[in-house]
Design a protein around this nucleic acid. Structure first.
Lengths: 204, 204, 204, 204
DNA sequence: TACTAACCGAGACGGTACGTCTGGTCTTGAC
DNA sequence: GTCAAGACCAGACGTACCGTCTCGGTTAGTA
């Protein structure tokens, strides 16, 4: 392992950074993750390979930052209300609405290829996986936690439930079906998940 | 893409096949999936590269078959009772027992590296993913389905529940935590999942 | 080195032998010597590879036999007078006539590719080279020796001349030009060679 | 065939070039031409294969340049007088001396293996053959032409003789014997050739 | 007429080298 | 010092052949 001399961030070329993000996302979308190469990104971005190696340590890292940047950009464009979780007073309805939106997003081909690529890398590369979870997944899940806490206050959810675990009852099935192709994902499916989770499998 | 003229299966060398499986699993365990190469497998197995390319079309496919074979072998050694799902009459206890065993298996380093490698490949390669699911995952899930059906007969589970979806309430959270490193997995965690799923989040 | 058990020549398949000769010559003509492979010959001849390895030890040997066979065939077709060297009583005229015929033959594309291939192999592989010389070249040169001996008898050539060396004065220049592309070969050139060789470079 | 984008000659590594030449000549000398491989040269030279493919298009081309370079080096070391052709006023003696030296050189094993390999390649590959002739053979032959011209001036050789053809009478026989193993080469043989060529076969 | 031993077509096998592609490092010259 | 450019060492890719081997199926000559 060679000690790199810690490049000077202040002199970094913003234009190159943007071009690299764009090239990385475009290539992953066009030819898929495995055929996306550092060389290819550099060439498409009109950038020297060293400029990539100077600032990132792997293809996955480049793509992750590019993807995070894409998310921030969309967020900035859409304004701040996009992060708000609905609270109509009807927990089941709110959860179903959010999950339906998630289903739609998971099917958007613009996000699908890079998302899958990153998720796959995260399965095998624990460090990158944890970074992904921390920066991309956990912030979204926190919104569920908050909504479930509110529901506990209003008595819609039992007090002794741990919301961080509870949310997995409907989020994880959807995640697994998408990740592992274990089944189709659609709105009725997520609606069912919410119902099962809220009211349990056992007779009441 | 060149059409290969379909090699003659009857003349296939069983010894080579075994050696390739062993080498593939050993290498994935030792150096990890990305650093496992076809050349490396061939060299370690004492086999020509062409013998691998003749019968498999990718590293992932080799590893999948090797892994499946490993499973079949273990199954053959363990006898048939290993596939039996416990049915003590107490559904919650049975599910908790099986999930605890699954937790232990997921943590077994012998299985972890190849499993993660295959899962990661399956995320990105739909065809291989579906094959994995069909051959490795679905057979296990079917046992949950059967046990849940029995529980429906005894009245422990409501009649209108779809068991294939129901099982995801406790299986998928575990799967996601393992796959994506979204949280720790242990016996109390899976116990909690079963309780939440069976009795719901809402007050009874 | 493994001792092969000396295959039984009496049971050899004449049909295969012919097919191999034909395939070898055809392939050398079509794709050139380096791209002609044993596999290719076997496939084109509709013959197992082992049938070639059983009877020959190298690609060069196959081609040499095929070429020799081709020569014998032509000879058999042409009748026996083809080997006769002209003797009109005028040595210079006779030599010029034969060399002109040789020029024409060297330019015949049907013979050129395999001849060059064999000659090249013979340059580097002394054993094969000597075999080629003994079977293909020396018999032709012997005819020059005979004609020169006759000329010594008639007084056209000095008695103290060694005919085997003398013939090289006009044969070798032609051979070298053809082999090494050191110059053009045509009838006036060989005529000149004969004149120079017979009457010398020094003033008479 | 892919068009490569013409590598930048100014940035070429001189050290690698030298190492490749050395490795190529060493390997050809040690294991022979056919067993010399590009991979082997690269490994021995401590160079990536691509560095060879970037600058040369075939094994033969590498070896030819290496051989030419070797010749230039020897020439540079030996100084310029090595190229001088003797002119004692006695043409026969001068020719005999030079041919005797040539015989010795042809027998020097250091030169023999690569020379034969290149000559063989040149027989079959016309382009390379012509390059070899132009760069290696023709410059030497030109010295004979010059000496013969001088001899024409002094009356030792007839005016109507073409020196370029005349020299072949003694050079080509030697070349053919060496190339094709058609006979032994030694000093008496070349002496004889000079005598025959100068004074002719016919009685004077 | 059956037996048997060799040849035969076919092609899988363990290998080696091919020529290409990419990874990650290093160097050069422009800015 | 960063940047675009790209040569460099390294080594895996997937392909093509090598020469050996094993498999059934002819096809003799012997019993």
């Amino acid at each position: 392992m060679v000690k790199q001399p810690a490049p000077d961030t202040t002199r970094r070329s913003e234009k190159s950074r943007r071009a690299i993000y764009d090239a990385a996302l475009a290539l992953v979308g066009e030819v898929g993750y495995p055929k996306t190469t550092i060389e290819g990104i550099a060439a498409r971005a009109g950038v020297g390979k060293q400029t990539i190696y100077r600032w990132w340590s792997s293809k996955a890292e480049v793509l992750m930052e590019a993807f995070l940047d894409l998310g921030e950009q969309s967020a900035r464009e859409a304004g701040q209300e996009s992060y708000a979780f609905p609270d109509t007073g009807d927990l089941a309805a709110d959860l179903k609405a959010v999950l339906r939106a998630t289903v739609d997003e998971l099917r958007d081909p613009r996000f699908e290829v890079p998302s899958r690529a990153l998720a796959a890398e995260g399965v095998v590369n624990e460090q990158l996986g944890r970074e992904l979870v921390a920066k991309l997944l956990e912030p979204s899940l926190q919104l569920y936690v908050d909504r479930l806490r509110t529901a506990q206050d209003t008595g819609e959810v039992r007090q002794d439930i741990d919301p961080r675990i509870a949310l997995e009852l409907f989020v994880s099935p959807l995640a697994q079906r998408w990740l592992q192709h274990t089944g189709p994902i659609d709105h009725t499916y997520t609606d069912t998940l919410v119902d099962y989770a809220l009211y349990g499998l056992a007779p009441r």
